[in-house]
Amino acid sequence: MTGSGSETPSPRRKRRRRSGWRGLVYIAPAMALVILFFVMPVIFTGWMSLHNWPLMGGTRWIGFKNYVRMFNDARFLSALQFTAYYTVIVTIAIFAVAFPLAIFVEKQRRFVSAYRTIIFLPVVVGLATASLLWVWLSNVDSGFIGPALKALGWVDKSPNLLATFDSAFLTIIIMVVWKIAGFTMIILLTGLQAIPSELTEAACIDGAGRWQRFRHLTLPLMRKTIALALIISVTGSILAFDQFYIMTSGGPQNRMISVVYYIFNQSFVSFNLGYGAALSIALLAILVAISIVQLWLLRVGEERP
């Protein structure tokens, strides 16, 4: 950091160096946690991925063969494809629901905190619990949705929602939106509330319409918030596992195997821990790349224009 040439550093420099050490001490606990629980496991996973590593029995060095295998693995590629499809659909669905909700609960009106609480409630339910709840709701005989449709006379026969890809996928999307939209709403709400009311008033006085204010004032000022919500939503969707495992066990005819589900199957059903590790590293690379692209697209690092 500092040049080693100077033999007698000025007092000012000395102080700065001391405060640098103090800073390191402050972040040391956090760094220790990150190194212990993130960096080291990742390095170990990378090490495993270079081996044929069965769950039981001896390991064998195979270099990059696991990574080569990945590109010819049709099941992995279809898992990637399905995960991408799911991520796009569910992210759009979550934002389409959460943004109007955020605008709705932002204004001061009667019962607004009650609305906020009700919308946020599903978020505090665990995803596995929510999945089990919806398995019951969509059960064809003893559930709620199918029998209710039948009781209303909309269908002749209670439909088995989890039996075909389209209806099962729709059910899962609705479940996830119900579960997650409240959280995204809260994030967006904080962004909305951070917009100074003077700006909105000034825009009103200048004669800007509702849509113009939203497009040229609200959206630009919420860029960072939207980026945060988007990254959380996309990352969460790419790592989706519970809902597919619990609600459809991989879906009708294995059509709902997400990437994490496939990694789980390879590691703990087929016992190829090495290959599972290689897939995990690939997934990590994909996630990092997507996050960088999102941050760049939304120009989060730059100052406001």
């Binding site: 039996a163 066990s249 009708p252 005819q253 294995n254 195997i257 589900y261 199957n265 059903v269 087929s270």
Partner: peptide, 22 residues
């Protein structure tokens, strides 16, 4: 046996579902 037959995501399990209901 597990990979071929018993695994819920194995070929036998998805075959029976696809062939009978698909």
């Amino acid at each position: 046996f597990n990979d071929l037959i018993n695994s819920a995501n194995g070929p036998w399990a998805s075959f029976t579902n696809a062939a009978i209901f698909g």
